[in-house]
């Protein structure tokens, strides 16, 4: 139960940061990318603040033998820079540039009750679901076919 409650509280902190920073505002996000037009550099400060706290905080946290509620830290093991990583990230950037929402910005934007956030999140969920089904199907196919 404390795991669930704490996760809700941490989500609240995350969503507050997103809302206060402007990351939930597509117009602001799109202007951040519009270097040659109505550029708004604010989001560089979001990244700066987030990285500063996370880089310092992780140094202390990851020195501990384990997290409070779990037996071990769940850290991504792969170090390979491969095609799915770069291709997927390139595709994500195109979608982000079209819609002005990234996943972390769109979820808190649902709480604003804006229709555009619901439309985007619905489509994004469908995209993740379809991508996972595709990968599962590809993995199930015999390699010599």
């Amino acid at each position: 139960m404390r795991r669930i409650l704490m996760a809700g509280l941490i989500g609240l902190v995350f969503g507050t940061g997103i809302a206060v920073s402007g990351m939930a505002n597509p117009a602001k996000v799109l202007n951040f990318f519009d270097l040659f037009g109505t550029w708004d550099p604010s989001l560089a400060f979001v990244m700066g603040g987030a990285l500063l706290v996370t880089a310092i905080g992780y140094r202390f946290v990851l020195k501990r033998p384990a997290p409070m509620f779990e037996a071990r830290f769940h850290l991504p093991g792969s170090r390979r820079i491969d095609m799915p990583l770069i291709g997927g990230s390139a595709v994500f950037g195109i979608g982000w540039g079209i819609a002005g929402f990234c996943p972390g910005g769109a979820i808190p934007a649902l709480g604003l009750g804006e229709a555009s956030a619901f439309i985007f999140v619905g489509a994004m969920m469908a995209g993740i679901f379809a991508a996972r089904a595709l990968r599962t199907a590809m993995a199930a196919r015999p390699q010599n076919a």
């Binding site: 799915p84 994500f92 079209i98 819609a99 929402f101 996943p103 985007f120 619905g122 995209g127 991508a131």
Partner: peptide, 15 residues
């Protein structure tokens, strides 16, 4: 928005 959402979903999954 729909096109962007679908593209973001596929991209972040593979990425």
């Amino acid at each position: 928005l729909i096109v962007g959402g679908l593209i973001v979903g596929v991209g972040v999954y593979f990425g």
